[in-house]
Write a protein that binds this DNA or RNA. Structure first.
Lengths: 218, 218
DNA sequence: TGCGCGCTCCTTGGATGCAATCAAGCCGTG
DNA sequence: CACGGCTTGATTGCATCCAAGGAGCGCGCA
């Protein structure tokens, strides 16, 4: 694969996984030195990331990891909720036995992680769970869109699970969602998924406070 | 604005407006000469367009305007239907008098174009009509996503209206959608919008045939 | 004559160098 | 002492140059 593509994936990973925080500056020369390449592939990678919305390039002022204001973040979460609801609705309509089994397995993994009390593990299994729903929509394109927005929101969702008792509540919602999908209830699935994702918007003041603290610490 | 940005917008426009057809090859040197710049900003523009999905760059083999296979195109239209349904649902819930007025005005413009029998004009007013619905969702991010996918599908939707009597039917559906939104009926709005967009998938064999003929002619 | 191998040329990918622009700091003046 | 303009420095943006990798073509061999 190309340098630019590998760099793009690497930088994207670092943003998604929280190594590079929202607001962090991305200096071309610095990145070039770090990866041992010239500025050209760095520039190409940054431009591509800018198109996905993960970073922003201000003309003549370089690139920074996107830090949407709270209002926009809320819009993004709402859009995520709509995408997930669509995936879930289609999954409920078209569920194959294979996807049903995957879904149940992912739910069990969430249960195990929740009972284990390991936040990082629950976060990972939660991600898998949602990805299974995307795939179960049996619409590859929609699945890609949902994954893309999910990655874009990852830096912010990461802060959500710390809210008190959120893990237990989240798992309960997961269980309800699976139940609705297995029952083939499209409307119920969509409604539950919407609510599940939007909770993160309801708890919004917490998130804003976390962001403020993070950027103050940086 | 930058050269790369202007080039991106220009090339994007040419793809959306059918000047550059799906499958067309995008030669860097050729484009560079045509726009009187070096290959660097051309490369940057092409990479950005690749991230939006409008074009595909194959390593060492250059860029071509994306030509999704029929199955993927169907997935894309289905996703578009879901996005539009979401926009419509939110619009029905949150409609302001201003957006209501815009919606009625856009509907009237569609009526005029439909009665005038001008396909190009109806196509334009149709685009405006849908854009008004996106905006009426009062979610700027969702609106952007819908517009982006809409542009990406434009090269293919363009072929749809030629289907016999489609304009009249399309307008009737528009009227029904506006009615549902003004009534604040979320579920009805979503259902009607889904059906409206998916008609383009139902007529799919026509589209495939058009594509085959076009690529044979090219 | 048909098939396979190798060569050459064309295209892309990356590096480097140069120019333009913006930001910040400094000096002068009111 | 404060404010404004200028200058300088750093950084981006573009052009040019070089290398590497395929694809197509021709030649040779069976």
């Amino acid at each position: 694969m190309n340098h630019a593509q590998r760099l793009r994936l690497t930088i994207e990973d670092e943003i998604v996984n929280g190594v590079l925080r929202p607001g962090a500056r991305l200096d071309e020369a610095q990145l070039a030195e770090r990866f041992g390449v010239s500025r050209t592939p760095i520039r190409e990678a940054l431009l591509q990331l800018a198109m996905t919305g993960l970073i922003e390039v201000k003309p003549r002022r370089g690139a920074v990891v996107s830090m949407p204001d709270p209002a926009r973040l809320l819009e993004m979460f709402e859009t995520m909720a709509e995408l997930e609801a669509s995936c879930g609705r289609l999954a409920a309509r078209r569920l194959t036995p294979e996807h049903g089994a995957e879904l149940s397995a992912a739910l069990e993994a969430c249960r195990a992680a929740a009972e284990g009390g390991d936040l990082a593990e629950y976060y990972a299994e939660n991600t898998v769970f949602h990805a299974v729903i995307y795939r179960a929509s049996r619409n590859g394109f929609l699945c890609e869109q949902a994954l893309a927005l999910s990655r874009r929101l990852a830096p912010f969702r990461r802060l959500q699970l710390r809210v008190r008792n959120r893990v237990g509540q989240s798992f309960a919602e997961h269980a309800g969602i699976v139940e609705a999908i297995l029952a083939g209830d499209e409307a119920e699935t969509a409604a539950r998924l919407r609510a599940h994702v939007l909770v993160q918007g309801d708890r919004f003041s917490d998130l804003i406070l976390s962001l403020r603290r993070d950027s103050a610490a940086a």
